[in-house]
Computed example of a mutant assay.
Amino acid sequence: MKKLLGFTCLFCLAALLQSAQAQKIRLNAYAGYVFDDNVDSYYSNTSYFNGTIQGSFQWGAGIEYRLHDAYGIELLYYRQDTKAPITYYDYNSLREKYSNVDVAVNYILIGGARNFARSERFEPYGGFMLGVGIIDAENPDTDFKGSATKFAWGLRLGTNIWTSGAIGLKLQAQLLSCTQAAGGGIYFGTGGVGTGVSTYSSMLQFGLGGGLTFRLQGAKK
């Protein structure tokens, strides 16, 4: 699945870069902080977990194709490496356990952007994002490793501040959600093969940050 997603992204990037000879293309670099998000699920007194996906640094990049002066579409990639202190019921020991799970969250998204430019320098924008979230996790106490690919969506609101004709500063607030992404059976190693918690909890992450935007002008006809 990951190879297919990677190939799809490379194909889209190649197609967009090829079209840069006749269209405006923007390259965007992102950096920011994602805040804590609580995850929990209770199915029964022997099937539950609760904890926090801790806030941490998030970085990313995107390539934006300008459909119109006021509209664009962007292929985005975000990456976050963090910890998740989790309390869960362990089927092997038949008791409650605590682990500080290593988590890597990857988002691959297609985002639309609507600009509300009031001047050549300031370019406010907002938009909606859809795609997938790929979550890899490892429980250091059990050496259990798991991965899941889930539907993801997001909202963003920000502004570009152009310092020159081609380079701008980006300020942005965003909300990202990965539907039913955190699960006991996938992440926490709560039991052996064929056992473990099978319930899930959706992730909802709020972030603040910014970055740089580079405007590429295609060759004139």
Rank of each mutant, 00 (worst) to 15 (best):
L216C: 06
F128A: 04
A70S: 15
G32P: 05
T82I: 01
Q205L: 03
R95A: 13
F206D: 04
A61H: 04
Y91C: 06
T195W: 04
K170Q: 11
K150W: 07
I110P: 04
N100A: 13
N92L: 08
N38A: 13
D143T: 05
Y91P: 11
L4V: 14
Y107W: 09
D37K: 00
G191W: 08
L27D: 01
T190K: 09
A20F: 14
A117N: 15
T213M: 09
Y71A: 11
Q217W: 00
G6R: 08
T87Q: 14
Y42M: 00
E120R: 11
R26L: 05
A219E: 02
N38M: 05
R118Q: 11
C12W: 02
L130E: 02
L13M: 11
G60A: 06
Y48P: 02
R114D: 05
L17Y: 05
Q18R: 04
C178V: 14
V103G: 10
A84Y: 15
L67T: 06
G184S: 08
I86T: 03
K83M: 11
A31L: 03
Q180F: 08
T142R: 06
T82R: 03
L176P: 01
L10W: 09
A117S: 13
I161R: 14
F11A: 11
A70M: 13
R95F: 13
W59R: 08
I135E: 13
K3V: 02
Y71M: 15
F144V: 02
W153M: 06
L17D: 00
G211N: 04
G112F: 02
T195K: 05
R95H: 14
F7A: 10
T159Y: 05
W153A: 05
H68T: 14
G111K: 12
G111D: 04
G189A: 01
L155S: 08
N92D: 14
G154W: 03
N92G: 12
T195M: 03
S56M: 00
T199G: 06
R215P: 00
A182W: 02
Q58D: 07
K97H: 14
F128D: 00
F144R: 12
R79L: 12
A113V: 06
V193F: 12
K2G: 07
G184A: 01
L10Y: 09
T52L: 03
I25E: 02
V193T: 14
A219V: 10
D81V: 07
T190L: 00
G112N: 08
I110N: 01
G51W: 01
E120I: 09
K150Y: 08
G126F: 10
F128Q: 06
V197I: 12
L10D: 11
N115R: 10
G131H: 02
A113M: 03
G183Y: 01
G62C: 11
Q205T: 06
I108V: 13
L204G: 05
G184K: 03
A70C: 10
I110A: 12
L27I: 13
Y200D: 10
Y65M: 11
G183L: 13
T87K: 13
V103H: 14
G112E: 03
Y33H: 00
M129T: 12
G185E: 01
G154N: 05
Y48D: 07
A22S: 01
T195H: 00
A31E: 04
G192E: 00
R114A: 15
Y42P: 04
